[in-house]
Simulated assay, not measured.
Amino acid sequence: MNNMTRTFAALADPTRLTVVEELMQRGELPAGDLVSHVGMSPPAVSRHLKVLREAGVVTQRADGTKRYYRVAPESMRAIVDWTIAHRSFWEASLDRLDAILAEEGGAHNE
């Protein structure tokens, strides 16, 4: 569970989530492309990438002086697995919400 905690904590930041979404859509990118997309300074983006890397959400590869980043598929798979494992909780919660809303809707119609 410790890895999931780090993963969700890393993705809780809007900038880091934007970076991950960009990498998921466009594939592996150099850090400079990410800088231009998120509109932050290179050091700020570098700090965000470090958090994502340490959480295991992205991987880095060097090619000369450039650093390329991509989403670690195993981290996305872990999120999917966690979500599916907790599916019954979410479904039960939504069922309870539906029941409450239906009850309230009936009370307003009387």
Rank of each mutant, 00 (worst) to 15 (best):
R53H: 15
L94R: 10
V20G: 03
A85F: 12
L49K: 02
R53P: 03
W82M: 14
P14T: 15
G56A: 15
V57R: 02
G106T: 12
L49Y: 05
A92L: 12
L17S: 05
K50D: 05
A72E: 10
D63V: 06
T5W: 07
I79R: 10
S88E: 13
A107Y: 10
D33F: 01
R87V: 07
W82N: 13
A78D: 08
M24W: 02
Y68G: 00
S88C: 02
T15Q: 15
T7R: 13
Y68K: 01
R87H: 09
T18V: 01
Q60C: 07
E104P: 01
V71G: 01
D95G: 05
M4A: 09
T18H: 07
V45D: 03
L17A: 00
W90F: 08
L34S: 12
R87L: 09
E104K: 08
Q25G: 01
A10R: 08
P73K: 00
M4Q: 11
V20E: 01
R16T: 11
T65W: 01
R53T: 07
Y68F: 01
H48S: 12
P43S: 03
A10G: 13
E54I: 04
G64Q: 05
A99Y: 09
N2W: 13
S36F: 00
M40Q: 13
V35E: 00
T18L: 09
K66W: 10
V20W: 00
G105K: 12
N2Y: 13
S36K: 12
V45Q: 08
E22F: 01
T59I: 00
Q25T: 07
M76Y: 02
W82R: 13
T18S: 05
R77N: 10
G39H: 04
E91L: 15
T18Q: 06
D33T: 02
R61Q: 05
E110N: 08
T7L: 15
T65E: 04
V19K: 02
K50H: 09
T59N: 00
V57D: 06
A85E: 13
T7H: 12
L23A: 14
L29H: 03
S93W: 11
G105Y: 09
K50C: 06
R53D: 09
N2F: 13
E110L: 12
L11E: 05
G56L: 13
S75H: 03
Y69K: 10
D98W: 04
I100M: 09
F89T: 12
M24D: 03
Y68P: 00
A78I: 07
V51N: 04
L101I: 06
T15W: 10
Q25P: 01
V58I: 14
M40L: 15
E91A: 14
I79Q: 08
V38N: 05
G56E: 15
V51F: 05
R47G: 05
A62N: 02
